[in-house]
């Protein structure tokens, strides 16, 4: 998780980097120049592209069992086939689509909840905040996975939408707490008061004044939410609690391990699902590290290059104005 709460620790180290504390949105620009961010974003974009273009690039129907079973990768079947004779590549492509859909959907749901339950009451204060904070804390002590399993068991035939809901509705509490504590440190800053005094509405103040000042934390929380949701979905599918008729990274793993992929040495069947999860997780982690680097002043490099450049520019300017 990005450590952006106030950037610096105690007095001494805070004093070591004062001007940077104020450069709040410059990190967006710096992010574009960061290697980790670029690699992470590249992988992320590739997955999104696969998901979006799935119907066009899948080549076969992922459900069709018309192919020879357990065939190794070949020109016809790039990733080989399953024990039932399905095309693994088609499964991977469509699985990417449904896994990302569940991931994004659940993350949006839990983010909305985190904002409504964590941020807004923190900004409003008073009884509402007390009630919501207690509610969040209760939710936090209930372990997540068992809760999901129970919820999934109640919904007999879960589909993509119910999965999203189950994961989203159970996964907001930790993030609500993080967002709440950051909101609390901002809510009574003078500039927020100034906005309220101009007659701005609560939501305007929250979205226009507070959110931009915690954007990096918010983005990190969103990415963490996506990753969490994708892992949760895989977990549920793997336990057979998802919708096994729908291909996803999790159900690919489930069928592979239950269909005896290991016994038959069909590594091509087992690998894509797990690898996709690992790779996607890596891309989010890379982006998160990058975000940490560009927003946390203590991890930043001094700009010694710019000094020389400025000195040269100054010499030129001095010549121009004849000083």
């Amino acid at each position: 998780m990005a450590n952006v709460t106030h950037g610096a620790s105690a007095g001494p180290s805070a004093a070591a980097n004062p001007p940077m504390r104020h450069t709040q949105l410059a990190w967006v620009r710096r992010l574009g120049k960061n290697r980790k961010a670029r690699v992470g974003l590249g992988i992320f974009a590739a997955f999104v592209l696969i998901a979006v273009l799935a119907p066009a690039i899948a080549r076969y129907n992922p459900g069709s069992t018309n192919f020879p079973p357990l065939a190794p990768p070949s020109a016809q079947h790039w990733f080989g086939t399953t024990g039932l004779g399905q095309d693994v590549y088609a499964q991977f492509v469509w699985g990417t689509r449904s896994s990302l859909l569940v991931g994004f959907g659940a993350s949006v749901i839990s983010t909305v909840l985190a904002v409504v339950i964590g941020m807004y009451p923190a900004y409003r204060g008073g009884w509402l905040d007390n009630v919501m904070a207690t509610f969040t804390n209760i939710f936090l002590v209930i372990p997540g996975l068992p809760l999901m399993i129970v919820a999934a068991a109640y919904v007999h035939q879960s589909n993509t939408l119910t999965l999203m809901l189950i994961i989203g509705l159970t996964g907001w509490a930790g993030r609500a707490r993080v967002l709440r504590s950051q909101t609390l440190t901002l809510a009574h800053r003078e500039f927020v008061w100034a906005a309220r005094l101009t007659g701005a509405s609560d939501w305007r103040v929250l979205v226009r004044e507070i959110l931009p000042n915690m954007l990096s934390l918010f983005v990190a929380s969103l990415m963490y939410g996506i990753l969490g949701a994708i892992l949760a979905e895989a977990g549920l599918e793997f336990l057979g609690l998802g919708n096994l008729t729908q291909v996803s990274w999790g159900s690919m793993l489930y069928w592979a391990s239950n269909g005896g992929a290991e016994l038959n040495g069909a590594w091509w069947w087992l690998l894509p699902g797990g690898l996709a999860i690992a790779l996607f997780g890596t891309s989010l982690a890379l982006m998160n590290f990058a975000l940490d680097e560009v927003t946390n002043p203590r991890l930043r490099q001094p700009a010694s290059r710019s000094g020389e450049r400025l000195a040269r520019a100054w010499q030129v300017m001095k010549g121009d104005i004849g000083q």
């Binding site: 106030h6 610096a8 620790s9 105690a10 007095g11 001494p12 004093a15 504390r21």
Partner: peptide, 21 residues
């Protein structure tokens, strides 16, 4: 504001200076 950290008590920050330096 530059010197003082909003989330720590004044005493904590004083002791931190001596602890480090």
């Amino acid at each position: 504001l530059v010197t003082l950290n909003p989330v720590l008590t004044v005493g904590h920050q004083f002791r931190e200076i001596f602890r480090i330096h």
